[in-house]
């Protein structure tokens, strides 16, 4: 059956593309699915709220919401937060708020890698401080306008050219290094490369510290705790960044977490009983067998492990 379909294809080879686009396939007997058809992305949503069950967005898997929300301003995100539990979780994403924070106040003013609370909270706090400061010294009769002016800053959304570029979250020294590299390469900041979307699968990158720069466009990827370029590696079960190759622990759902705890406890018990801490059965066998002179001696030794 598969061959029949194949022969049909030969005849179609020369025909025009568009006229051949839509034909019926009641005879499709061959079942063949691309191996990696569905990329498994970060399934972080699971841990607090699985997915939206009703409405238009119910089809979209939780890990993709980030890609929609990254175009929104802080004000829009807050609106989404108030809609339902899942949206609240998805719209409070650290990466999103970090970018918004750095866009408004710059990365240098953030407290480096160690910060007291989540980026969203930082943003709202800073916004409040700014508002108080801004309004305190203004003339009474203009107070209303001052408040509106200040509130308008919350509706600043990232530009489409910014959403895939991490350069806004760089601090100044690194940003300088990056722009030096870019000017050496003849890449300008505002150059638009149409149709090119950076991805770990297609682009080659230059590395400066934590920072990865696409050699074609000069777009920046910062690979740290808010990295969102990760995909789930099927064989190891860890999250791997497609750009840097960094591995991250997967976010576990509550069920999984209890499982691992139980496993670890069991593991702990057996570890105590074993004379060789920290190595598995094969490693021990290897160690024991290392000094054996012949097969016989080896077999005798291995009885102990």
């Amino acid at each position: 059956m598969a061959d029949e379909i194949g022969d049909g294809d030969d005849e179609l080879l020369v025909s025009l593309l568009e006229s051949e686009l839509f034909s019926d396939a009641s005879d499709s007997e061959r079942e063949d699915e691309p191996r990696s058809l569905k990329k498994q992305r970060l399934e972080k949503g699971e841990s607090s709220c699985a997915q939206i069950e009703t409405g238009f967005f119910s089809k979209i898997p939780p890990e993709l919401f980030h890609h929609i929300f990254k175009f929104l301003s802080s004000e829009d995100l807050i609106s989404c937060t108030l809609v339902c539990r899942f949206m609240s979780f998805a719209a409070s994403d650290e990466t999103l708020w970090r970018r918004l924070y750095c866009m408004r106040w710059g990365a240098a003013s953030a407290t480096g890698k160690f910060r007291a609370s989540a980026w969203k909270k930082l943003y709202i706090q800073r916004d409040e401080e700014d508002m108080v400061e801004f309004v305190r010294n203004c003339p009474m009769e203009f107070k209303e306008y001052y408040i509106q002016m200040q509130a308008a800053k919350r509706s600043q959304a990232p530009l489409p050219s910014q959403v895939n570029d991490d350069s806004i979250i760089l601090d100044r020294t690194v940003a300088d290094q990056v722009s030096m590299w870019k000017s050496k390469r003849g890449l300008t900041d505002d150059e638009l490369v149409i149709g090119h979307v950076c991805s770990g699968n297609t682009c080659s990158y230059t590395k400066i510290g934590d920072v990865f720069i696409c050699e074609k466009t000069g777009r920046v990827h910062v690979c740290d705790d808010t990295c969102r370029e990760v995909v789930l590696d099927q064989s190891s079960g860890t999250l791997v960044c497609t750009i840097s190759g960094h591995c991250y622990d997967r976010w576990l759902s509550p069920d999984e977490e209890t499982d691992t705890d139980a496993d670890q406890q069991q593991g702990g018990v057996t570890d105590e009983a074993e004379p060789f801490m920290g190595s598995g059965r094969f490693a021990r066998a290897y160690l024991l067998g290392y000094n054996c002179a012949d097969e016989k001696e080896l077999e005798a030794t291995l009885r102990f492990c």
């Binding site: 939206i52 009703t54 409405g55 238009f56 967005f57 993709l64 890609h67 929609i68 929300f69 990254k70 175009f71 929104l72 301003s73 004000e75 829009d76 807050i78 609106s79 989404c80 937060t81 108030l82 809609v83 339902c84 539990r85 949206m87 509706s155 959304a157 489409p160 959403v163």
Partner: peptide, 25 residues
């Protein structure tokens, strides 16, 4: 994604709920 986000822009929580047909839970 950008187009979907455009739909969500400059809306109140009620409007977002209405557009996406999500019941407030």
């Amino acid at each position: 994604c950008e187009k979907v986000s455009d739909i969500l822009k400059n809306r109140s929580a009620e409007e977002v709920g209405e557009i996406s047909k999500i019941e407030n839970e």
